[in-house]
């Protein structure tokens, strides 16, 4: 069963055009001109129940707009939506009982009152029975280690403490679908790891479907088996994270540090016949890019051991997801690479 189904979804915003100069400002007073901007442009995807899916893209790619349509906050311009059996914006009050939402940049707790009072209020808002609430709260408080924070007012919490409380607030009513919009933004590595572990456990234990937007690709690597990548309002990649890596990974990078100057030409001569590209900032430092199919040891064997080239340091690095994603953003499409189709990725994880 699909928890989320999206078909040809679009959202167009009217943005006021400001004409320049005093004359333009006067003209604007009487007749406004608008530009139509498609924040989300004809996207389709579906997410099966129980999946953790990463939703990534540059700033302004349309991630948040999609999340806001999926959660019933925004009304789509066109297209079909089904989330947990509801059309979000049409039956908003019924629909939201079944979902949990965390916006990393906005607090949903009440600023002036104690954390536990906020939770109590949410219990009443969602109509959670007293017993279920106690059980759930105990479990969450223990898991996220909130013990002594509960009595404090929200405004006195640090960002990391607040974020953990935000998670509890979004999950008290045990939603089956959870939307997280940049849940780890601004957090330190310890809290980030804690939150990732927590989300993973929740997904395993309760089978919660999670859609997650983030700029931190480590979140994606830690949590998601599948990613949907967005650029300028369109889906440019939808598939497994592994597929993304194998198709787009540029192989391994070997960095050499030399004791004495070693010209690039010499290195190229050494690796004659092997498909390796060399780059160097100066004569003491060079980088070899080894494509996926080749062995790193082949390169090393040719360079290491040459008596006239003293090597002081070698570093071997795998292409990171960050680099892959940066590469895809730059070209603006993941489909350009034959075989990295949308379909293959989607089917690989059902």
């Amino acid at each position: 069963m699909n928890a989320i189904e999206v078909e040809h979804l679009s959202k167009v915003f009217k943005v006021q055009k400001n004409r320049g100069g005093l004359k333009g400002a006067l003209q604007d007073l009487f007749s406004r001109q608008y530009n139509e901007v498609a924040a989300v442009n004809d996207i389709s995807f579906s997410i099966p129940a129980g999946e953790i899916c990463g939703y990534i893209g540059e700033n302004g790619a349309g991630k948040s707009t999609t999340i806001k349509m999926l959660t019933g906050i925004l009304v789509p311009t066109s297209g079909r939506l089904n989330v947990g059996g509801y059309v979000p914006h049409e039956e908003r009050e019924k629909f939201v009982r079944n979902i949990g939402v965390v916006f990393g940049q906005r607090s949903q707790l009440w600023w002036d009152i104690g954390v536990i009072e906020s939770f109590g209020l949410l219990r009443k808002v969602y109509g959670v029975p007293e017993n279920d609430y106690k059980k759930r709260l105990d479990e969450l408080v223990q898991r996220l280690d909130l013990g002594e924070l509960l009595s404090r007012p929200v405004r006195k919490l640090s960002l990391g403490q607040r974020m953990r409380c935000e998670l509890v607030a979004a999950l008290l009513h045990n939603p089956s679908i959870v939307f997280l919009d940049e849940p780890t933004i601004g957090l330190d590595i310890i809290v980030k790891t804690e939150i990732r572990e927590f989300l993973k456990d929740m997904n395993r234990q309760h089978g919660t479907t999670i859609l997650l937007t983030t700029h931190d690709l480590q979140d994606i690597e830690a949590l998601c088996s599948r990613v949907i990548m967005l650029d300028e309002g369109r889906v440019i990649y939808d598939g497994g994270l592994d597929t993304l890596k194998t198709r787009w990974g540029q192989g391994t990078r070997v960095t050499f540090q030399f004791g004495t100057a070693c010209p690039l030409a010499r290195l190229r001569a050494l690796t004659e016949g092997v498909d390796i590209s060399w780059t160097a900032d100066n004569d003491l430092h060079a980088e070899a890019l080894v494509p996926g199919g080749l062995n790193v040891s082949d390169v090393l064997a040719r360079v290491v051991g040459q008596t006239d080239i003293p090597i002081t340091d070698i570093k071997i690095t795998e292409t990171t997801t960050d680099e892959i994603v940066r590469q895809i953003y730059r070209t603006g499409s993941a489909a350009a690479d034959p075989g990295t189709g949308t379909e293959s990725g989607r089917n690989s994880h059902a």
Binding site: E93, V96, R97, V125
Partner: peptide
């Protein structure tokens, strides 16, 4: 400031 968004994800008026 956009915090109206939070109001829409709650099952109340």
């Amino acid at each position: 400031d956009g915090s109206i968004a939070i109001q829409f994800i709650r099952p109340y008026n």
